[in-house]
Design a protein around this nucleic acid. Structure first.
Length: 414
RNA sequence: GGAGGGUUGCCCGAGUGGCCAAAGGGAGCAGACUGUAAAUCUGCCGGCUAUGCCUACGUUGGUUCGAAUCCAACACCCUCCA
């Protein structure tokens, strides 16, 4: 094992909160002396299987602990997922069935193992102990925390102040998550900054059960692909599916690549710092090169390639880069364009109708609008006539959109 | 249990009988300019081949020639009192 100072340097890189540093040092020292790895827990709620690269920030930190020789416990919040953590968006999360949770947990771990070493990862589910928890124990647990303490949590406080609903089971959530740490007797718990409150509840709870309090470390939440830099500070919503500013871990290579290339030129460094395996020095070097006039597209492509390589493979990354260059910079047609067959009653088919039947737009109204606005190409030529009729028995190559180009061959069946 | 306030499109938010498919803003989309990004400007932004029709302002019913707007019941949320 590495000496304490070196481990600390790795552990604290890029983290937001660390409670408490001196305890961490002591615990690392002890671990080196006894040869016992620290028990590091990171939990996740398998609420929805829509993982994006924002989640990968935490996974990368977990991986660092593994590389330092510590023991990672990946806690599946199978039970807590059904309770539903109050979201940052202050909406009540839907409660999920056990089946949905299981499916989501599977996709989560599949993705996590693209970063984590499965042989060094212990997967546990809190349903193991929470399913059978007796009411007396629940009451005991609830008696450890006051309502006003709960209301310290930002989103509770906010909702309370704004007169929006808070349900009682939501108060239970942090307690249950904290109790997981008691069951697992963790040395350290990791989470996103949004989890700080919950993590600290665990820390408070442990001594009440006769355990040493866990050390709490949080990683930043990655801003979405639509983030901007204003006055040197990154601004923008967190990456999320609902804000549609995410890069999914299972997205096709070309989409990953495209989305990275559409990130703001300066914001890309945030991504580098939180996700790239490049060293801090290398990243600084890239920043310097950009300042000296290197094409930002090249720098973004470096990150895009690294990302696609990690979640797919190197061949996919190269292919994606080539396709991107051809399709977006060179206006070429991608290799694998899907062909759809649409039918028509009459001798011809209205373009707007064809677009919606082919699934390229949501409605014929939208199709018509796009044509009117010049957002549609048929056989590589921009369509200007919103009344264009496609002929029966012919096959057309249609392109819709610009930022996110969609191509299809439309065959008008006789 | 009692009293009062609230529920409008993806989000925020105006609208208190016809001029309301519903102001304004945000988000989003398209075009121009570009680099694929930013900034800026322009246009669009419920559905339907439509000078019209359908669906929509929590739900259901009612009043009216006509309802997001008035009435009733219900549901949900909030506040105060118990």
């Amino acid at each position: 094992m590495l000496p304490v100072a070196e481990q600390l340097a790795v552990i604290t890189r890029g983290v937001v909160d660390l409670h408490v540093r001196s305890e961490l040092e002591a615990r690392l020292e002890e671990s080196i002396k006894t040869g016992k790895p620290l028990r590091v827990k990171a939990g996740f709620d398998p609420t929805r299987p829509d993982l994006h690269i924002g989640h990968a920030v935490l996974m990368a930190k977990m991986r660092q602990f593994q590389d330092l020789g510590h023991h990672i416990i990946l806690l599946v919040g199978e039970f807590t997922a059904m309770v539903g953590d109050p979201t940052g968006k202050n909406e009540l999360r839907p409660r999920l069935s056990r089946e949905e949770v299981r499916a989501a947990a599977k996709t989560y771990t599949d993705q996590a193992f693209k970063i984590l070493d499965p042989s060094k990862t212990e997967i546990r589910s809190n349903a193991e102990w929470l399913d059978e928890m007796k009411l007396v124990k629940v009451v005991e647990l609830m008696a450890t925390m006051t309502v006003s303490r709960m209301l310290e949590r930002k989103d509770f406080a906010q909702r309370y102040a704004e007169g929006r609903p808070i349900y009682q089971h939501e108060f239970l959530y942090p307690l249950l998550q904290g109790y997981d740490s008691v069951e697992l007797n963790c040395d350290i718990e990791l989470g996103g900054t949004d989890q700080l409150f919950n993590l600290l509840v665990g820390r408070d709870l442990m001594p009440r059960y006769g355990l040493r309090p866990q050390i709490v470390i949080t990683t930043p939440l990655l801003e979405g692909t639509d983030a901007r830099i204003e006055n040197g500070v990154i601004v923008g919503k967190k990456m999320s599916k609902s804000a549609d500013n995410y890069i999914g871990l299972t997205e096709p290579p070309i989409d990953m690549f495209r989305k990275v290339m559409q990130i703001d030129d300066d914001v890309i460094f945030r991504y580098f710092e939180l996700l790239s395996s490049r060293s801090t020095q290398e990243i600084e070097e890239l920043k310097r090169e950009k300042a000296e006039g290197r094409d930002p597209r090249e720098i973004k492509a470096l990150f895009a390639r690294e990302l696609v390589t990690r979640f797919h493979d190197e061949a996919a990354a190269i292919a994606a880069e080539n396709e991107f260059k051809q399709v977006y910079s060179g206006h070429a047609v991608p290799q694998d364009v899907e062909e759809v067959t649409v039918t028509t009653e009459g001798p011809t088919l209205w373009i707007a109708k064809a677009l919606s039947s082919a699934g390229l737009v949501k409605s014929t109204g939208e199709g018509k609008r796009l044509v009117e606005q010049g957002g549609v190409e048929v056989d590589q030529t921009r369509v200007t006539d919103a009344n264009l009729q496609l002929e029966r028995g012919k096959r057309y190559l249609v392109r819709v959109g610009s930022k996110n180009r969609r191509f299809k061959y439309i065959y008008v069946a006789p």
